[in-house]
Design a protein around this nucleic acid. Structure first.
Length: 585
RNA sequence: GGUCCUGUGGUGUAGCGGUUAACAUGCCAGUCUGUCACACUGGAGAUCGCGGGUUCGAUUCCCGUCAGGACCGCCA
């Protein structure tokens, strides 16, 4: 070994010891006859001191930032200490210096407060990762996966690998496709998740499966979505919903303790999907604050106000949130800004009323009857100083607009704390959602989700009324994980495929292997998958998923470091039986 | 697919229809024995993303394009 200690280890206890250290030159401070170098390694920083007595000080002249060096020296007490560093009481009186590698001037400052823009950071990701900020996130990520593995291993889960080259399936996200050389004209798909394989493992008689699994989805990206991401994937057989939730809760509890030192209370609260949609307008409510959605349909049943009347006539809904004490905060200008935001979600406008001196006011008030004003006041329970925002639109738009507003306003008004972790379950998801445009049903979770025992028959006569054994884990308004009990009998599986509009032939060609497998004895089973990247984001307080992935891609799925994706040679295409077309062809 | 924001020395920003293109940091040279964002002095470093247009004149205004970012659609 060319070193005896890491750069976070030496303290006043080690005074007088001869040690060897290694690392990158983080900073050189040349005071003339005395030179300091901050030596950075994976673990921390130790200050090196070079004096005039030997020739070493001269050697430091050629040393620049990011050189890789190894030194030998004696631990000495600093005459002026730095309380901000763990090694701030000591420095190394260097006796021997080895330059292991030189470095060009880096295109960015390798410091936590680097001001380099993200494209520069991504192109030189290996430099970016030298920064303690990212290093600590990567360490946290490791601590999370280690804790998860320890826990699941203790609970007798088996760690499996499932294929990366697999079958493209309909439904769900767009697949990443890999051409086959042996079978020209045919393609593998990269897995969107190991869903079917883990179910097949249950059918194989394995009872507890887990995998920290890479998943691929070729969809447009967001600040919390990457084309390849990682799931903590779990499946269990001979279990009921409570068993999956229980294991999940204990796992999260363990992670929270290990990473944040926080004891979270289990079991987590549960809320039905219907309740979440009704009170929060979303399937992933932030429960750190209230400001519930209030339905005003009754208030305006007979209204003369055309906008509201036509909304109701068309089957839409009028709903509001009351921002307590928000009247003074929200000036016309700010309300206009909110209105613009809300339009993104399809809302055509944003009505509002304020209450002052016991009177409601607002630009739409003049269209309301006295009875309506009175009912509005009581229904929203408005107090002086409150402002309520009202959206009237299709139920879906009304809810998503208000759900957005609720989060947006709570953030602006500081109604919650980033260190509050409101883990809760959203349960009893519907099996399907009807898409009016496509005139068909889509699975709300996925097509392998089991319907409630009491709702089996609804699959045939009222699919939209069938509830599923589906559950999502939500924290801070984000979906952290989701799962379900799975279908374990052929009849229900075929029924579900039928609801989704798949005839017998396409069921066979797409999912024949699953339908076959279900016929050879299938234990009841279920599971869950957690978004590891999101978990790391939440626990490190990061707003950007790129910061929790060592080598992430840009918003257009481009890797600035390797420049993937990139063209391939004609020979490669030929071998795969592919013909290249330009964009316009 | 759509909307919006950004693109100026190595890095990050400022700026403006005519400038010697400014500032910080980094870099180079020098002084300095207690720094830790060392300090001080001096210096080098920019076809203002790319293409086209308007104009006597464009880094600045307009159009297109490329790249990065945010959001909507999309993501079972």
């Amino acid at each position: 070994m060319i070193y005896t200690h890491n750069n976070n280890e030496l303290t006043i206890e080690n005074l007088g010891e001869t040690v060897k250290l290694k690392g990158f030159v983080a900073k050189k401070r040349d005071l003339g006859n005395l030179v300091f170098i901050d030596l950075r390694d994976q673990e921390g920083i130790t200050q090196l001191a070079f004096y005039n007595e030997n020739q070493l000080k001269e050697e430091t002249l050629s040393i620049k930032n990011e050189y890789v060096i190894a030194i030998e020296g004696v631990v000495a007490e600093r005459s002026s200490k730095n309380p901000n560093m763990t090694t701030g009481d000591i420095e190394i009186d260097v006796k021997k210096l080895d330059v292991l590698s030189t470095a060009k001037q880096p295109p960015m400052m390798v410091q936590d407060d680097t001001d380099a823009l993200e494209d520069t950071r991504l192109k030189y990701r290996y430099l970016d990762l030298r920064r303690p900020y990212l290093k600590n996130i990567m360490k946290t990520r490791h601590l999370i996966t280690k804790t998860v593995r320890d826990f699941l291993n203790e609970e007798d889960f088996l760690d499996f690998e499932t294929p990366m080259l697999t079958k493209s399936t309909p439904e769900g996200a767009r697949d990443y496709i890999v051409p086959s050389r042996n079978h020209k004209g045919n393609f593998y798909a990269l897995p969107q998740s190991p869903q079917l394989f883990k179910q097949l493992l249950m059918i194989s008689g394995f009872e507890r499966y887990y995998q920290i699994a890479k998943c691929f989805r070729d969809e447009d990206l967001r600040s919390d979505r990457q084309p390849e991401f990682t799931q903590i994937d779990i499946e269990m057989s001979f279990v009921e919903q409570d068993d999956v939730l229980d294991v999940s809760e204990r796992m999260i509890k363990r992670v929270m303790k290990a990473v944040k030192g926080i004891d979270v209370k289990t079991p987590f609260p549960r809320m039905t999907y219907a309740e979440a949609m009704r009170k929060y307008g979303t399937d992933k409510p932030d429960t750190r604050f209230e400001m519930f959605l209030t339905n005003l349909d009754e208030v305006f049943t007979d209204t003369e106000f055309k906008v509201f009347a036509s909304t109701l006539k068309n089957g839409g809904s009028i709903q509001a949130i009351n921002v307590e004490g928000g009247a003074t905060t929200y000036s016309r200008k700010k309300i206009d800004a909110l209105t613009n935001e809300v339009k993104k979600y399809g809302a055509k406008g944003l009505a509002w009323v304020k209450k002052d001196d016991g009177e409601l006011s607002g630009p739409t008030i003049k269209f309301f009857s006295d009875n309506e004003i009175q009912a509005l006041d009581t229904t929203l329970n408005m107090q002086n100083g409150d402002i309520a925002f009202i959206v009237a639109d299709r139920l879906k738009v009304t809810r998503s607009a208000l759900a957005f507003l609720r989060n947006h306003i709570a953030k602006a008004l500081n109604l919650y704390d980033d260190n509050t972790f409101d883990f809760h379950w959203v349960v009893d998801w519907p099996m399907f959602e009807y898409d009016a445009e496509d005139e068909r049903f889509y699975a709300l979770h996925h097509p392998f989700t089991r319907a409630h025992d009491a709702h089996k028959d609804r699959l045939k006569d009222a699919p939209d009324k069938a509830l599923a054994y589906g559950y999502d884990l939500v924290v801070q308004g984000q979906e952290l994980g989701g799962g379900s009990l799975r279908i374990h009998d052929l009849a229900m599986q075929s029924d579900v495929f039928s609801v989704l509009g798949m005839d017998e032939a396409s069921q066979q060609s797409q999912f024949g292997f699953l339908l076959d497998a279900l016929q050879y004895g299938t234990p009841p089973h279920g599971g869950i998958a957690f978004g590891l990247d999101r978990l790391v984001m939440i626990l490190t307080g990061t707003k950007n998923i790129r910061d929790v992935i060592a080598f992430p891609k840009t918003a257009s799925a481009h890797c600035l470091l390797t420049e993937a994706p990139s063209p391939v040679s004609n020979a490669q295409l030929e071998e795969l039986g592919l013909i290249k077309k330009t964009r316009d062809e």
